[in-house]
């Protein structure tokens, strides 16, 4: 890992990986959509609305994955003072916020026909809403300082503090009785859903994950460009 603390090496790595992330993402999403909308059957209980699952569940996974990545990168940045890690965390935040928003919005669109309401204040929904606020707080704090590195470090501490929310989200459906159904894929005794539904779900999840890396790589490269622009401007005003 320390090898890639060097920005040049890291940039080279992500520039090489970016086409792969893009390819995997586009292929998996195309195949996933085909299976999700055409091949997979309707659920006997939830009928056609089960198709919302294929965009809702991957978005929720990614909401938590991105937060974990952001908090992990923040911890690496604080402990080893790797500036590259802060850049990864900063690039991850808006993507994670987008996934969290999608998880809430598609969940709402699924809740209306299934539960008869757009929103309930149960533990799962509330904790995901808090996650969205944590992302927004992270981005606000990160951009609120004239000194960029001060903002990066302050936001990193916030990301780590907010990480207590991630296990709460994960286990909220087991700890409290809620309308939200418990996990049916990630279980110790194997997934509880049929393979005809598991295939599109996993394809979409892989597509979303690759999409995250794709966009994150693009954002990291833009961040590095910005840093260089700032350095050049500084040099030119001094010259």
């Amino acid at each position: 890992m320390h090898r890639f603390a060097n920005p040049t090496r890291f940039l080279k790595l992500i520039s090489a990986l970016q086409p792969w992330a893009m390819g995997v993402s586009v292929l998996c999403l195309a195949a996933g959509l085909y299976f999700a909308l055409i091949v997979s059957p309707a659920d006997y209980q939830q009928s056609e609305t089960v198709r919302i699952m294929y965009v809702h569940v991957p978005a929720s996974w990614m909401a938590m994955f991105c937060y974990s990545a952001m908090a992990g990168a923040s911890a690496v940045g604080l402990i080893w003072r790797h500036l590259t890690a802060f850049v990864v965390a900063r690039a991850t935040a808006p993507i994670g916020a987008a996934f969290t928003f999608l998880a809430l919005a598609t969940g709402s669109l699924w809740g209306k026909p299934m539960w008869g309401t757009w929103w309930v204040w149960d533990a799962r929904l509330t904790s995901v809403l808090i996650l969205l606020f944590l992302y927004l707080g992270y981005m606000a704090l990160e951009g609120a300082f004239d000194d960029r590195s001060r903002g990066a470090r302050a936001a990193a501490i916030l990301a780590i503090v907010g990480a207590v929310n991630v296990p709460i989200i994960k286990f909220s459906v087991d700890w409290w009785n809620t309308l939200h159904q418990p996990a049916s894929v990630v279980k110790i005794d194997g997934p509880a859903i049929h393979s005809s539904m598991l295939t599109p779900l996993l394809l979409m999840a892989m597509g979303y994950t690759a999409f995250y890396f794709w966009v994150m790589f693009v954002r990291v490269r833009a961040e590095f460009n910005d840093a260089r622009i700032q350095a050049l401007r500084l040099r030119q005003t001094e010259a």
Partner: peptide
């Protein structure tokens, strides 16, 4: 979509739009 198109298509459309 079995009468649920009004919920399914917006969720796919919104996801595509945001991403």
């Amino acid at each position: 979509m079995g009468g649920y198109g009004a919920f399914i298509w917006p969720s796919y459309g919104l996801s595509a739009l945001v991403l």
